[in-house]
């Protein structure tokens, strides 16, 4: 099968090709630009010489020798000025770009973390907003159990009076007072520190407290 010119990735078109771009405008190689400028200067000195000999077959002929003395403004196909080779990014520009990119990445990561925190907070607020009357009654019942525990520890403390004589007895009394305060402390601190957790989590910690702070001295009657 014969391949047509349109099948080639690179084709050599001429002015009849609608995609044809004049070589002077499409050439991006700075080395060729330098060579072209030198050649043009040579042409400027000898304006009578045909331009095709100096610039090659692919170059546009230079019409007027007076235009050679003025630095030509190079433009690309879009009409904007082309980058000169001296405008290549310097080390400062590269470093500034690197810092800007890293800052942007950090800012993006922070935004993602903020979004995650917001979602978590929204979930917690939704959970706390849905504190149904059933959950409220459950917390009340558990609080009542802790209150009964407090009374139990108070009775046990009164049953076993100590007469402080030394550090051990004093510390025994301190432990007795701490045990009286233990149910209330567990209840309040659980609701305080787990305020943003789900109701089930708070309830589990309260049930653990009900098991831990049972007043065994009151139950055993000793």
């Amino acid at each position: 099968m014969k391949r047509g010119p349109d099948d080639d990735a690179l084709s050599w078109g001429d002015e009849s090709d609608p995609t044809y771009v004049a070589p002077d405008l499409a050439d991006d190689d700075p080395a060729d630009d330098d060579l072209t400028e030198v050649d043009r200067a040579d042409v400027g000195h000898d304006s009578a010489e045909p331009a095709d000999d100096a610039t090659g077959a692919g170059e546009q002929p230079i019409e007027d020798a007076t235009s050679v003395g003025v630095e030509p403004v190079k433009q690309d196909a879009a009409g904007s000025p082309r980058w000169a080779s001296g405008a290549a990014p310097t080390a400062e520009v590269v470093e500034a770009n690197r810092v800007a990119v890293s800052d942007a990445k950090v800012r993006q990561a922070d935004a993602a973390e903020d979004a995650a925190v917001e979602d978590e907070l929204a979930d917690a607020e939704e959970a706390s907003a849905q504190l149904s009357s059933a959950a409220l009654i459950t917390f009340g019942v558990v609080g009542g159990v802790f209150f009964l525990y407090t009374i139990g520890w108070l009775v046990a403390f009164i049953r076993n009076p100590l007469h402080p004589g030394g550090f051990a007895e004093v510390w025994q009394d301190v432990q007795g007072v701490a045990a009286i305060a233990a149910p209330a402390l567990w209840f309040l601190v659980t609701l305080l520190l787990a305020a943003r957790r789900r109701v089930a989590v708070r309830l589990i910690w309260l049930l653990v407290g009900i098991v831990v702070v049972v007043p065994w001295p009151f139950i055993l009657g000793v």
Binding site: W153, Q175, A178, A182, W186, V213, P215, V222
Partner: peptide, 14 residues
């Protein structure tokens, strides 16, 4: 600290 006091008094009663 309060839980330690509770456990201590529990074990003493036991």
């Amino acid at each position: 600290f309060a839980v330690v006091a509770v456990i201590t008094l529990d074990l003493q009663s036991v």
